[in-house]
Amino acid sequence: MKLNIWACLILPDGKSIILDHNKKQLLLFSTEGIFIRKVVTFTKYPWDACFARNYTVAVTLGLANQTALVDVNKSKIIQKIKVSHNCYGVASDGKTLVISSDGGQCTTVNLNDMSHTIVEGMGGMYYISLFQGNIYGNNYNKNEVCCYKSTGEPLWTYHHQDIDYPVGITLDINGFVYIVSRENSSIVVVSPEGKNSKTILSNADGIKSPHAIDINREAGMMIVSSDISDDKSYETAFVYKI
């Protein structure tokens, strides 16, 4: 199957979700990595995805200024969240959904009543993650990893030569930040306080031009996308125990 992976997720039951940007599709795979079915096809180009809650996946629709909530079991879009900015990165802790843009704005959405709050001053974060009330993001124009309070107040910024064009981002149960460093085909882990880092996967491990990453914190499982052809026309996803 020819894939263009912009997001990959491990669901609570161990199955995987792949977001194919070119085909505008959300795809479901078994715990063994076998294709099960297409979940939904979007009319707009999707950008990022995260597990929201109750077997629902949130998918950002980029320049459409919308984020779709998709019921994976029912294979349908159950709601579209319209915001005032473009929708790139998305993250959830089961109670709050955070949607990022390239203009320094984020929108937080209360998943219980769907109320919106605009958060300013979080510049250029295309991909984000949410952990213990803080928002983490990558700025690939500056090769930086940033951590903010939910109010937008900056906590720390980390820059290192091993981080080159950071895209996907996620955190483990202990608060370590996992960064996809696309240009040097590696996965870099940054300490919870943003002081130091370590490369844990690289091209030598078979990782090539990765884009997306996700961790199921309860299961301790990580999924990472990777090219498997020189022309970048075929991609796959590897699952690791962490």
Rank of each mutant, 00 (worst) to 15 (best):
D20L: 06
H21K: 15
H21D: 14
H21R: 15
N22I: 11
N22D: 15
N22M: 12
N22T: 14
K23E: 14
K24G: 10
K24F: 14
K24I: 03
Q25V: 11
Q25M: 13
L26G: 04
L28E: 13
L28Y: 09
L28D: 10
S30I: 03
S30Q: 10
E32R: 12
E32M: 09
E32Y: 13
G33S: 08
G33L: 06
G33D: 10
G33N: 11
G33P: 05
I34Y: 10
F35Y: 15
F35I: 06
F35H: 14
I36W: 06
I36T: 13
R37F: 03
K38M: 12
K38T: 15
V39Q: 07
V39G: 07
V39M: 08
V39S: 07
V39N: 07
V40D: 02
T41Q: 14
T41F: 03
F42Q: 01
F42A: 03
T43P: 00
K44I: 01
P46D: 06
P46Y: 06
P46E: 05
P46W: 02
D48K: 12
A49W: 01
A49G: 05
A49D: 04
A49C: 05
C50T: 15
C50V: 12
F51R: 03
F51K: 01
A52I: 05
R53K: 15
R53N: 12
N54S: 12
N54D: 15
Y55C: 09
T56M: 08
T56V: 15
T56S: 06
V57R: 03
V57I: 10
V57T: 03
V57H: 05
A58P: 06
V59S: 02
V59K: 01
T60V: 07
T60R: 02
L61H: 03
L61P: 10
G62I: 00
L63M: 11
L63N: 14
A64Y: 04
A64K: 03
A64S: 15
N65K: 15
Q66P: 06
Q66K: 13
Q66E: 14
T67D: 02
T67F: 00
A68H: 02
L69I: 06
L69Q: 05
L69P: 02
V70W: 05
D71P: 05
D71M: 05
D71K: 04
D71S: 11
